[in-house]
Design a protein around this nucleic acid. Structure first.
Lengths: 227, 227
DNA sequence: ACCTGAACACCGTTCAAGT
DNA sequence: ACCTGAACACCGTTCAAGT
């Protein structure tokens, strides 16, 4: 890639320069550098060594390119645990892998909001695997999708939080806390203690707690008594 | 406001035309029409009857204007139930009011992602009220903020879902479902039956179920046995 | 079919000039 | 202090011309 930038002529190249896979890979690279607003059709074209207009021979719009990136994201989710361990453990492992993947790529969270998760053949297969595990564990058919959906809702919320700042609940920044803020201050200090004991981040503790609570609550509502 | 558009001279107006309240109100109006990308500094200026540059005498950037809108959103959340009913019922009512508010204004969901919820004096007061209710219900200090945080995570996730399309789990679109998709199809049909019985939307059922499960699970983990 | 070059209709932001 | 007018450095997208 050193001096490869000999300029192309004006006409159609003898062999096509662009394709979906190359555009998608370049788009992910641009997202890593610069986030969603750093991914412009011009920066993408520059990385690909073409002019912006060339991309429109392959993608109808910028949104199309973003959807291609989305597809790749869905393909990365790990469902290998289903069938290999208890439903509860498999769900927890899947949820954590989902969250970790999104946390490592906060730009993808913006992306999911901008271009909601598409229904593709591959995501359908992922759901299929999970649904089968619910049924094998004895859950009623009608309880499966709402339970899975509630879980996914929580995961998305956690990913969204991860894109924001830490310490949302921290009391006033002006030295002494006012009288009204006493209990907020106390509970925050107690939470900080918990964080220290556990040796995890606030966010991880909140996620683990919420995940456990959600799984427990769903199990009590639908899945019988056994943990 | 009919023919009020007499052109202003070039210099400083004798009485200021803009202020924070007016800019914020105009920004919310632009968000309702056209969403986040419909709110441009030029459209905002046009609505306010000024040139784009004038806004920069009051707001440092477009992001500042978005943060002002955020502040207003936080002020609308209803915490009146805390103290007036059981903690669980009050939390459920607060969660629903939060979700309904965001659902009625999907453009604000984009906004929350673009400009994460800021820590203001007013949001601090809201948390204060809720924290007091947890304590009054006998929860340990260290359990309060992680529980509240997990709940808020779920609500944000639900709001994010609401901005997306319906029927994410619907099986293949090509008439007959393939063998592999059988259980996805069956569970979807069963869920559809549940939706009909309940007379609510898929989303409402998922939210209600997740909320109940989360509250139940948190209560079992931290809040003792009594519902 | 698939690229370049040039254009169109936009952006956010800055800043001198004017009162 | 607070506006206008004009500019700067960008956008996404379209399309004729070229091979």
């Amino acid at each position: 890639m050193a001096e490869a930038t000999e300029t192309r002529g004006r006409g159609r190249p003898r062999v096509p320069v662009l394709d979906k896979a190359g555009i998608t890979a370049a788009a992910m690279a641009e997202l890593r550098r610069g986030g969603l607003r750093g991914l412009t059709m011009r920066s993408l074209a520059a990385r690909l060594g073409v002019t912006p207009g060339a991309i429109y021979n392959h993608a109808a719009s910028r949104a199309t390119v973003l959807a291609w990136v989305q597809e790749q994201v869905s393909d990365q989710l790990n469902v290998s645990a289903f069938g290999a361990m208890s439903l509860r453990d498999a769900l927890a492992q899947w949820a954590w892998s989902y969250l970790r993947y999104l946390r490592a790529r906060p730009e993808l969270v913006e992306l999911i909001v901008a271009v909601p998760v598409a229904h593709t053949a591959r995501t359908s297969r992922m759901y299929q695997t999970i649904v089968d595990a619910f049924r094998a564990a004895g859950w009623y058919d009608r309880s499966v999708l709402p339970s899975l959906s509630a879980l996914e809702t929580f995961i998305f919320g956690a990913a969204l939080d991860s894109a924001g700042p830490e310490n949302v609940y921290e009391p006033s920044h002006d030295g002494r806390s006012s009288h009204d803020e006493r209990s907020l201050h106390d509970t925050h200090a107690a939470f900080a203690g918990l964080v220290l004991e556990a040796g995890a981040s606030e966010r991880d503790i909140v996620f683990q707690l919420g995940l456990d609570a959600l799984l427990t609550g769903l199990q009590m509502r639908w899945g019988g008594r056994s943990p």
